[in-house]
């Protein structure tokens, strides 16, 4: 067994056992679940934003659709909120097609700005909709009626549910990455014009990536709702939700399988802990620290934290090559 393999096994074991390790502390167990939930959102974003290079800053549209689908399933039909997840995913794919067709032909920052505008549009409209509870928002079941409501005191069940979803999503992303679509997406990201000239249907593949990404972002929204039991226009469609997905993926390393997870692993605990230790004093110290750390990482590692590993690996392989060269 190589050392790398050993480290991998240890990491997987740690991830699986985490809730048991911190069993005594509900706060730490919850932190684990929050990291995974954020990682699901950021990884979903990564499909279109990282791999295809289409930087959407309006993914809150899909997150909100997921959250609202779940809660409306409860308020209108009386079903467990999670039953709304497939509806939310389907609806998101549809909405992604409607938004994607006109906006995906925009380049670079124009696409980002158009997605912000669409997300703000949806946020404002949602706050005027009676059906969605207007600006007051909607709450899930106040007390769990059955286990299907997925409403638990302990965060451990959430942890494993989120872990399963994240694993599935990462597996799918991995499959795409190594399949034909991944190849096309990378080509589009490098140079759309070149990709088109090679016969890649760039528009179509960007749209596929966008719709897939939307579906999983909606799933993250539905899961958010089952855990927190409430959504309003700001916590569903707010611009901060979109920005956080982008920031997490970028911080870890966009367009890399584990980039968003690494980003979530840094940012979520940073946000929660700094709020726990500094938030009570008022004065916003939490965000001064949070902002400064993001700033510093961007300054020194503009390609994300995972670029550190890559740098080491490429240095190592360079070293190996030199040795080989000498052997020759």
């Amino acid at each position: 067994m190589t050392r790398r393999r050993l480290i991998q096994i240890l990491l997987v074991a740690l991830v699986l056992a985490y809730p048991l390790v911190v069993a005594g502390s509900p706060v730490w167990a919850r932190l684990g679940a929050l990291v995974l939930l954020a990682a699901i959102g950021a990884s979903a974003w990564n499909i279109v934003g990282g791999y295809a290079g289409q930087v959407s800053v309006g993914h809150s549209v899909f997150f909100g659709i997921g959250a609202y689908s779940a809660v409306v399933t409860y308020t209108q039909l009386g079903l467990p909120p999670i039953a709304g997840a497939p509806i939310g995913m389907a609806l998101s794919v549809l909405v992604a097609a409607v938004i994607g067709v006109p906006t995906l032909k925009l380049s670079g920052h124009y696409f980002s700005m158009a997605t912000i505008a669409v997300a703000e549009l949806v946020r404002v409209l949602s706050s005027t909709s009676e059906f969605l509870g207007g600006a007051q928002g909607l709450g899930g079941p106040p007390v769990p009626r059955s286990v299907l409501d997925l409403s638990f005191i302990s965060a451990t069940p959430y942890y494993y549910i989120f872990l399963a979803v994240l694993a599935g999503l990462l597996w799918l992303t991995h499959a795409i990455e190594h399949g034909r679509m991944g190849f096309y997406l990378r080509a589009i990201k490098d140079s759309e014009r070149a990709a088109r000239s090679l016969g890649v249907a760039a528009g179509r593949y960007k749209l596929y990536a966008y719709m897939l990404s939307a579906a999983f972002t909606a799933l993250a929204g539905s899961l958010y709702l089952t855990m927190f039991g409430f959504v309003d226009p700001e916590s569903g469609f707010g611009i901060l939700i979109s920005v956080k997905m982008v920031v997490m993926a970028a911080l870890g390393g966009a367009g890399q399988l584990f980039g968003p997870l690494v980003g979530a692993l840094i940012l979520v605990p940073l946000e929660e802990l700094s709020n726990s230790y500094l938030g009570g004093q008022g004065a916003g110290l939490t965000f001064v620290v949070y902002g400064a750390i993001i700033l510093i990482i961007a300054r020194f590692l503009p390609s994300g934290l995972l670029s550190l590993l890559e740098r080491r690996r490429s240095a190592a392989s360079r070293a190996a090559k030199t040795v080989d060269g000498h052997a020759d």
């Binding site: 927190f228 959504v231 929660e272 726990s276 009570g280």
Partner: peptide, 15 residues
């Protein structure tokens, strides 16, 4: 013991 809900339901519940 005063904590910050940051104006979001999530932070309110966590805190």
């Amino acid at each position: 013991v005063i904590a910050d809900n940051q104006g979001t339901p999530a932070a309110g519940q966590n805190q």
